[in-house]
Design a protein around this nucleic acid. Sequence first.
DNA 1: AATGTGACATACC
DNA 2: TGGTATGCCACAT
Length: 110
Amino acid sequence: METNFYELVFDIVKHIPKGRVTSYGAIAKALGTAKSSRMVGYAMNLSHKHDSKIPAHRVVNRNGLLTGKHHFNNINEMQSLLEAEGIKVVNDSIVNFKTLFWDPITELNV
DNA sequence: AATGTGACATACC
DNA sequence: TGGTATGCCACAT
C-alpha cells in the first residue's frame, strides 16, 4: 500500500470546499495524529509529486497565516489563489479566518 | 537502527 | 509583542 498518511492528508485537502480554509493541526487531528501537524505540511510539500491537484493554498497554520506560501512556485500565487476563491488575504493573513475555517472532523466525520 | 528534519503548536522569556 | 525554545510524530536519508 502507499503511504497512508499522505494519502489521507491529500484526501482531506482535496475535500476542502471552495472558499474555505483549514489548518494543519485540524487535518492532523482529523487523521488521529494531532501531534503530527508538521507532517501535514510536509505532505503538502510532496503534493507536487502526486498528480492529484492539492489546493495547498487552502491550508494554513493555526493563525490563518500563509506560512507555506514560500513553498509555492510563486509567493504571490498562494494569496492570489485564495482571493480567487473569495478569501480575503491581508498581510499574508486570512481575513475572517475563523469564519472561513473548515473543520474536516466536523464536515467529514459528522 | 539511528539520526535528522519540518508548509505546526504551544510555552516560556 | 515577539523572538526563542521545546515537544511532537511520521517521513527521509
